[in-house]
Simulated assay, not measured.
Amino acid sequence: MKNILVAIDFENNEKLLLDYAAEIATKFGSKVWLIHIAEPEPDFVGYEVGPQYIRDTLAEELREEHRQLQDYAMGLTKKEIEADGLLVQGATVEMIMAESEKLNIDLIILGHHEHSFLYKVFLGSVSTEIVKKSKIPVLIVPLIE
């Protein structure tokens, strides 16, 4: 197992996912790829970009998320685990699947939040969709809120 992909959603559950990734990576000598899928560009989804202050705010949020990914990667590197952080914009499930293929990922680690029935009907679950579409093993970590 050479490459592990960990999906980070910045909902204060990263430590648990990082701990699992570190344990597995240490045992197998794997590289850990941390990925966060940000919302697509407004033009991508058919909306105008809007005023400059909105673009500036979005750009700052992306910079902060990228900095945080790099900090997590650095924390793993200090534990002698090779790690990189990726910030990608687009549709979550599709981007995770595309990056997994591109990076030759051997294991995907995702957190799973329990949602209401209506949430699942209208929005679905990223972890469920990844499991359905992936040909790569997926480790689902239950996240208790």
Rank of each mutant, 00 (worst) to 15 (best):
E114H: 14
M1H: 12
P40I: 01
Q89S: 15
K120I: 00
Y119M: 11
E61I: 14
S100G: 10
E64D: 12
D106F: 08
M97C: 10
L139Q: 04
L17F: 07
M1E: 05
F117A: 11
H113G: 00
K135T: 09
E82G: 14
F122L: 13
M74K: 15
D19C: 08
P40R: 13
L58F: 08
K120R: 15
I105A: 11
T57Q: 09
E129W: 00
I140Y: 09
M1G: 15
N104Y: 00
F117V: 00
K135G: 09
E129P: 06
R55M: 03
D71V: 06
S125V: 09
K133F: 00
V131Y: 03
L18K: 14
L118N: 07
I96T: 14
H112Y: 05
L16D: 04
V45I: 15
L139C: 02
L123Y: 01
T26W: 04
E14F: 00
I140M: 10
K135W: 00
D84K: 11
I54F: 12
I105D: 10
D43H: 14
K2D: 06
D106R: 01
A38P: 01
K27F: 03
H36D: 01
K135S: 06
E101F: 06
S30Q: 09
N3C: 03
E129H: 01
V141W: 08
L139G: 05
P40S: 14
P142V: 08
M1K: 10
S127A: 15
H113N: 04
D43C: 08
G90R: 13
L107S: 14
G75N: 13
T77K: 14
E60V: 03
V138N: 00
T128Y: 02
Y119D: 04
S134F: 03
E60D: 13
Y72N: 07
S125R: 02
E101K: 15
L107M: 05
M74C: 01
E48P: 06
N12R: 15
L123W: 03
S100A: 15
L34M: 00
M1I: 04
E65Q: 13
E94C: 11
I96L: 14
K102P: 03
K31N: 11
Q70T: 13
I144N: 01
T57G: 05
K132R: 15
E99N: 03
E41N: 09
Y53W: 11
D56Q: 14
A59P: 01
I105Y: 11
R55H: 10
G111T: 08
A98V: 02
N104T: 10
E41G: 11
S116P: 00
D71G: 09
R63I: 01
H66F: 07
L16T: 12
L86M: 13
E41L: 12
I105C: 08
K102Y: 07
K120H: 11
D84N: 10
A83Y: 04
T92N: 02
E145V: 01
G50V: 12
I24S: 05
D84H: 10
S116I: 09
P51E: 12
M95K: 15
L103D: 13
S125M: 10
S100F: 04
V126P: 05
V131K: 15
V49C: 06
V49S: 09
A7C: 13
D56V: 10
L86S: 14
V138A: 05
K31Y: 09
H66Q: 10
L110A: 06
E60K: 11
L69C: 09
S134H: 02
P42Q: 10
E11H: 14
